[in-house]
Nucleic acid binder design. Sequence first.
DNA 1: CAGTGGTCTAGACCACTGG
DNA 2: CAGTGGTCTAGACCACTGC
Lengths: 265, 265
Amino acid sequence: MAISSNSTTDPLPPAADAGDAPGGTPAFSPLYQQIKVLILQSLQEGEWKPGESIPSEMELAARFRVSQGTVRKAIDELAAENLVVRRQGKGTFVATHAEHQVQYRFLRLLPDSGSGASEGPAERRIVDCKRQRAPAEIARALGLRSGDTVLQVRRVLTFQNVPTILEDLWLPAAPFKGLTAERLDAYRGPMYALFETEFGVRMVRAEEKIRALAASEEAAALLDVKPGEPLLSVERIAYTYQDLPMELRRGLYRTDTHHYHNTLS
Amino acid sequence: MAISSNSTTDPLPPAADAGDAPGGTPAFSPLYQQIKVLILQSLQEGEWKPGESIPSEMELAARFRVSQGTVRKAIDELAAENLVVRRQGKGTFVATHAEHQVQYRFLRLLPDSGSGASEGPAERRIVDCKRQRAPAEIARALGLRSGDTVLQVRRVLTFQNVPTILEDLWLPAAPFKGLTAERLDAYRGPMYALFETEFGVRMVRAEEKIRALAASEEAAALLDVKPGEPLLSVERIAYTYQDLPMELRRGLYRTDTHHYHNTLS
DNA sequence: CAGTGGTCTAGACCACTGG
DNA sequence: CAGTGGTCTAGACCACTGC
């Protein structure tokens, strides 16, 4: 362990030391961080599935031979990163995209309506779904070798009869073997929830680059706007555990009835 | 206090109870939350100025008659909200926009360049600065009465000789009495830093609505693009303490060389 | 009522900063 | 070296959930 003072209370299992490169900094890592890593490993190994509860703080404390407070601090950070959800009186649960709650956890597009009336569920239409060799640019974004197989999906989301989002997304073919347009069509609920339940891939974090673009002929037709009309271009890379990129998504949003919402602090 | 069990250790001053409406929920509020509110009050009253350190955890614990751990948890939350910054071995400091660090804390626009070379400071040009009666829409956003006086500033930010951002911003005239184009021009550093040091107004949080728009003739001229060219429209409301809106800002961003960056989790 | 997460305390010790 | 924030522990009690 990276800690020197815990002579008799090393957590179990004895976990390989993370840092401590000879030339670098001493890489001190507090106990609760090491516990956090251990819990993270269990999460990504699927010891506890999305939506399930993880062991109680007391149980984890016993398992790792640390105090409840230390486990608590580890879980606090996992909760802050939205990897688990705490529910007083019930337990701590593995976060999931399948929750009723906000339908799309990563979608920041909101209807303009000042009226709080949240619009109904989107109407989804798969336009295309095919396997192909990854173009260099796609491969790079997903950390694949150029030429590896990827799945490409194109779909349109329609809110209240207005086609609003045109999305292209690319997935590495290997982890998503068996994904078809039919399967996507049949599934009720967010796509990321399907990824969780059917393929064991949990999207944990994402980064977006946003631009304004003029609608191409093709996009204009699918979104029912005039070519050249300004659209919001949202390029998202979604990551699973370990900061592993697992999806590249390029969205074109109509922003005449909706807007992208963001909070800064 | 909302707490019943702390018979002899009520924090000082005895702070009016926050909730406890007869018809509503019992409104239990943990001690550390009450401490947090007390610290917040001192922050907004200016007991400690931006950049200064606040008293040590031990001092605050003594002052409020609670344990260090309770103060710690209160400060933890304030730090998570970016209201204060903790620095091990030195103390806890009131957050400020004047820090060297990231030049613009609320600006999410980044250069496209894969090269990490961060571009130099922006060249800023005040196009306009005037007092006027607030149009209804502006007044509503700022929580003013329609007809109240507001300051309007228009400026252009240029990065590496490319005019990239055209911003209009509206400020309630009262708190910003004495603000002039000259003063804005003379000031080195972020505008929000000037607001802090010269007017005692700290922007603490902001919300943005983002859209894609076609450049108007006027915007196109100022940003050196063709009219109709797609631009990113970013409408920001910045809040000071107590969720009080203090600035409305409408920015038009060129996204041919830059992009708006956002992280989701 | 037992079990869970949530709060609070008190005390010991560690890591980091600056004089 | 003293002072600060950061970690860790152990124990008590509270609030919430569901049986």
